[in-house]
């Protein structure tokens, strides 16, 4: 299960940030991802809960997932932007160029990114 590794990676990275800022706990973690990341939000949330269950620094932490739109760069015609709004009638994921119809596109994976964290700090 892909979401479990991702949730673990998020927690590991946030642990370092907590450490660095000597925070009491993290209240909220905002992450973003595009559609090509193939994330099932519920599975990600469940994994996050399981991993942080016993972790004092993650008590009542909220994981917020911000969806980013798909972005492609066409290798045929250099178009850059969202894929064809008509969708792709053949492939399960849409990375088709709206300008020339090519699927030979570079996809911006909009890799799962930790955008920000809200920390509770000692005063």
């Amino acid at each position: 299960m892909h979401e479990f590794s991702l949730a673990s990676a998020i927690v590991e990275q946030v642990k370092e940030i907590i450490e660095e800022h000597k925070a009491i706990r993290v209240k909220k973690i905002s992450i973003s991802a595009g559609p090509y990341e193939l994330i099932i939000p519920d599975l990600l949330q469940d994994s996050f809960k399981i991993i942080t269950d016993e972790l004092e620094k993650f008590r009542e932490s909220v994981l917020e997932l911000i969806r980013k739109p798909a972005r492609i760069t066409c290798l045929e015609c250099d178009y850059n932007g969202e894929p064809d709004s008509e969708g792709d009638e053949e492939f399960a994921f849409n990375f088709k160029c709206p300008e020339c119809g090519s699927r030979d596109t570079h996809i911006d994976r909009s890799y799962l990114t930790i955008e920000s964290v809200d920390l509770e700090l000692p005063s």
Partner: peptide, 10 residues
């Protein structure tokens, strides 16, 4: 409370 901008992929 403090919001920290991270902007790094996992």
């Amino acid at each position: 409370e403090k919001k920290i901008s991270v902007r790094e992929t996992v």
